[in-house]
Nucleic acid binder design. Structure first.
Length: 598
DNA sequence: ACATAGACTTGGAAAAATGTTT
DNA sequence: AAACATTTTTCCAAGTCTATGT
């Protein structure tokens, strides 16, 4: 790196930290004041211990220039990218072999896959949203920091780097294999078994069975909280209102957070500023939830809920707690009085899975194609994701791919138009037929011209390529290449075809390349219309889903047995909906029969 | 009741793998 | 076979909730 134009000769310990930042100078993080400050504070501490060897004094962040480091990392990336696929394969195999001893463990005599068997490498803490500690240096974890949890009388594994474990314990009441405390926030980090392991599967099953058990209690709970909305005791009334939100809007519980964390909230920690009243009965929620994802929802609520919020906000400042007499602990204790183990998060699982089951039951087309059924499934999945506010950044290529789809749709419409015009040319009576007389939308003269130009260009290119390839093949077989005139002739033909099409524009008449009887044309139009319809649906789906993340609900909230039973009932292979990892995550769900319901 | 430690689930982004087009 | 788009997997941060001690 350079400082004030001067090259800095850093010892490896400091160079590594500078490199963490250098690799990031092109990211949003490097534009963040908090990130930069936290990084630089920690960098200075490191520099104090490992000062530049050539005596440069680093004091100001603004004078640091990490560009050369950035370039170095970019070059490394490029080098890696430019490896041939054979080289990549070899490198991958070597890495796999190196890691093989650590990917599995033995639990009660069974071989089980370990999830995160790699210790987290040092780097800069990438806190989300407005995290006060983002950019801080996350230190390297050494054996001396790590506690391992193994079976009694089992040989102690040797660390694969120099050092000795902090501690070795034999605790079979927990599921972690190793843990350490991370230096930035003081949080515990754990090594757990993989999602497909027996213990994770067992606890997943328990989670969904608990959510199903809630069905037995939910009517009573709802009756009670609806009554309590009018309770004279304001604490009770607040709790009832909070439960209403948790149940109806699938809000998270909302534990209290500290000043050294990002300012995000859930139900119990909502502040007055997060909910506004819109007469006569609408509430507008606007707050940052988990991961600083914005929750925005305008929702018509029960009259008494509306009144309650007005009362709770009365006389308070925007930054005051909305539910000042409610906390997650008390709320969960109250829920547990109805049903053992019932907590706020169970409502999320319950409502997500039940909604999903219901949408599938009502929305799956009995006679549809597999694709149409999959569309119904994805739609149900999306509705649940929206309920749970699972968002994602719009994919970088979204606009581009929508554009491509629009072009393709126009192409289909063009085909339909030509078929219609072919009918008209054969028999003018079709012009009056209401099935065919309406022109295609979104297909004006300009669009037709552009489309024909594109088609022509493609055909010309294809012809040239074919000519070349044929000649190559001829050469291989020791034959004479075709004369240049063959190609010229072919190109001329294409030009003539499109000239004819150009002439056809506006005439509402078309002559098919291969003649067809009118019944066949009508049939082709029907087929094309079907294709256009499904394609349009696909486009709408993509647009509507550009900001919705479907994975989180599929992995955590939707009982997999709903999916498996649905697949069996509708003849859809489960593999179309569950990736390989999900298949291994949910082995316990695969045996349900087709009429199983959540 | 309350605070904190500890253990576990849930979450979006980024990286890697795979599929598709050129 | 490269370039590009899409899907899957990994990564690790950020929640929830229980146990424990006061």
């Amino acid at each position: 790196m350079k400082y004030n134009g001067q090259t800095v000769d850093l010892p490896p310990e400091a160079e590594e930290v500078a490199g963490f930042y250098g690799a990031m100078i092109d990211t949003e993080h490097a534009k963040d004041a908090t990130f930069n400050k936290n990084f630089f504070d920690d960098f200075l501490k490191i520099l104090k211990k490992y000062p530049p060897k050539n005596g440069v004094k680093i004091t100001k962040f603004e004078l640091c220039d990490f560009r050369s480091m950035f370039d170095h990392f970019e070059a490394e990336k490029t080098k890696k990218k430019s490896m041939t696929s054979a080289e990549k394969k070899t490198a991958k195999a070597a890495k796999d072999a190196l890691e093989a001893p650590y990917t599995h463990c033995t639990l009660d005599g069974r071989k089980e896959k370990v999830g995160n068997f790699r210790v987290e490498p040092p780097g800069l803490f990438r806190g989300r949203g407005d995290h006060p500690k983002k950019g801080a240096l996350k230190l390297r974890v050494r054996p001396e920091d790590i506690t391992i949890n193994i079976g009694k009388d089992v040989p102690i594994p040797t660390p694969n780097v120099p050092g000795t474990w902090k501690e070795v314990v034999n605790d079979n009441t927990v599921t972690w294999l190793a843990n350490w405390v991370e230096n930035v926030n003081g949080n515990y980090k754990y090594v757990f078994l993989a999602a497909g392991s027996s213990i994770k599967g067992q606890s997943d099953w328990t989670k969904f069975e608990k959510a199903r058990e809630l069905k037995k209690y939910v009517d009573q709970i709802r009756n009670d909280y609806n009554d309590a909305l009018r309770n004279k005791n304001m604490g009770e009334r607040q709790r009832a209102t909070a439960m209403y939100f948790i149940d109806k809007l699938a809000l998270r519980a909302g534990n209290e957070k500290g000043d050294d964390e990002a300012d995000t909230v859930g139900c119990c920690s909502l502040r007055c500023e997060h909910v506004t009243l819109e007469p006569p009965n609408k509430l507008v929620f606007d707050f940052l939830g988990k991961d600083s994802i914005r929750y925005y929802n305008e929702v018509a609520v029960d009259e008494q809920v509306y009144k309650n919020i007005r009362i709770f906000k009365n006389g308070k400042n925007p930054e005051d707690e909305l539910f000042d007499r409610v906390n997650t602990g008390a709320l969960n204790r109250h829920l547990a009085s109805y049903m053992k183990g019932l907590t706020a998060k169970v409502f999320r699982t319950y409502n997500a899975s039940l909604t999903f089951q219901d949408l599938l039951d009502r929305g799956t087309p009995e006679k549809g194609t597999v694709q149409e059924k999959l569309n119904a499934y994805n739609h149900a999945n999306r509705m649940v994701a929206i309920l749970c506010n699972h968002q994602r950044a719009v994919p970088k290529t979204h606009e581009q791919s929508m554009g491509k789809m629009r072009d393709k749709l126009r192409g289909l419409k063009y085909e339909r138009m030509k078929l219609r015009h072919a009918l008209f040319a054969i028999d003018a009576k079709y012009k009056k037929d209401k099935r065919y007389k309406e022109p295609e939308s979104d297909l004006d003269d300009d669009a037709i011209a552009t489309h024909e130009d594109n088609l022509k260009a493609k055909e010309l290119e294809k012809a040239e390529k074919k000519f070349q390839k044929d000649n190559e093949k001829a050469a291989e077989d020791g034959k004479e290449p075709q004369d240049e005139s063959v190609l010229k002739e072919k190109l001329k033909e294409i030009e003539a075809d499109y000239k004819r099409l150009k002439k056809e524009r506006g005439t509402e008449k078309h002559v098919l390349k291969r003649e067809k009887p009118t019944e066949k044309i009508e049939e082709a139009i029907d087929k094309l219309e079907e294709k256009i319809k499904t394609f349009k649906l696909q486009m709408e789906d993509r647009e509507a889903g550009k900001e919705v993340a479907l994975g989180t609900s599929k992995i955590n909230y939707l009982d997999p047995r709903i999916t498996v039973a649905w697949c069996k009932e509708h003849g859809v292979p489960v593999e179309r909906l569950f990736s390989k990892t999900l298949m291994t995550k949910f082995p316990w769900a695969m045996e349900v029969d087709m009429d199983w319901k959540f």
